[in-house]
Design a binder for these strands. Structure first.
Lengths: 195, 195
DNA sequence: GTCTATAAGAAGATAGAC
DNA sequence: GTCTATCTTCTTATAGAC
């Protein structure tokens, strides 16, 4: 791997763990195995490293979700259920990309807030469209209720995904059983959307 | 207000906006209107200021939620619906306490992670118990289904709350209509839990 | 591209006068 | 309790040799 890529990889790990201000160029250089000034042969400054890391993180995270969605086969119910489980598994393993993505989506360094937002607002809509297709198919095949709109179910599903991520972080050091937790969440959602 | 309290108030604002490492003692002193070394007459060091701010934030946030829960009257459905709306309104106004609470719950400064967790793990259970009571009453009065357990509905409700917070931050700079969003989320949840 | 050396500034923290 | 002055350390960043 080239030095430039090593720098970005190390940066994503360190920024995820310690935040923008909490990560020094010295720490990045140490992790890469070079001296601090060598970083400047590859990037203009700290900001440039960070912003490129954000771009990579954003693209990687959305690719990960997209791949997950496309890998699922079967009925809409099955796909939505499996996707929930896979997404949770990814969160649980404290998946670097999702950690990185959400850390800086929600709590960006103040000075770079707008630059970050202009990077992250791009990828979201495509994912929504993929899920909407799955839900529409489920409705057509009589699995999902037609009393609700596709959008209602889509937003609820995404809310469940977000809430699950939220709760898993929240309870991460308590003794809540993930499998049982997921089953509980899903059972209410499924009662809510089934035909 | 005493200087000590001013320091804590200013700290909560600055730590919320810029994080632990992103907030300097100089910035805190400026906001209070004193010089940097004067802080040391009130606190041992930066860590001590931060940890006391976390204690205050934790207590304040849980009090806020508790007050919201206790203020609601009427049927279980009405209480749960209103609470969702009020909680969202609080998030939306970028309520300082909830911002502060979640920032450091999810992304604490690495060195203080355990100390923070020992502060925040206390208040959660009491809130769960309050909500469980409301749900139980709803079940007894025939509003909520008895096909699901109280815990299933409680976890789903909390997941919806968390997911909504999540989504509101996520979409905060897009043009999603909050009122319509809440209605969509609620309609699926309500189909899921009603008798 | 990587290094050593070094600048220039900001950070947390202390000493001691008032 | 608050201040000025100061210390030390760490930070980002640059200059210039190899």
């Amino acid at each position: 791997m080239k030095t430039r890529e090593k720098i970005l990889e190390a940066s994503i790990e360190l920024f995820t763990a310690s935040g923008y201000e909490g990560t020094s160029l010295g720490a990045i250089a140490d992790k890469v195995g070079i001296k601090k000034p060598s970083l400047y042969a590859h990037f203009k400054n700290k900001e440039a490293i960070f912003l490129e890391a954000v771009e990579i993180g954003e693209a990687g995270y959305h690719d990960l979700l997209k791949r997950m969605i496309n890998e699922q086969k079967g009925t809409a119910a099955h796909i939505l259920r499996s996707l929930l489980e896979e997404a949770v598994a990814a969160f649980e393993e404290e998946h670097l990309l999702s950690q990185f993505y959400y850390r800086f989506l929600f709590f960006p360094p103040s000075a770079l807030e707008e630059k970050i937002r202009s990077i992250t607002t791009q990828g979201t809509r495509r994912l929504d469209a993929l899920l909407a297709d799955i839900i529409e198919r489920g409705q057509e095949e009589g699995e999902l209720t037609t009393e609700l709109t596709i959008e209602q179910m889509l937003r609820s599903y995404l809310c469940m995904l977000g809430g699950t991520d939220f709760d898993i972080r929240y309870y991460q050091h308590s003794s809540v059983d993930r499998k049982a937790y997921l089953e509980m969440i899903w059972s209410v959602f499924w009662r809510g959307v089934k035909a």
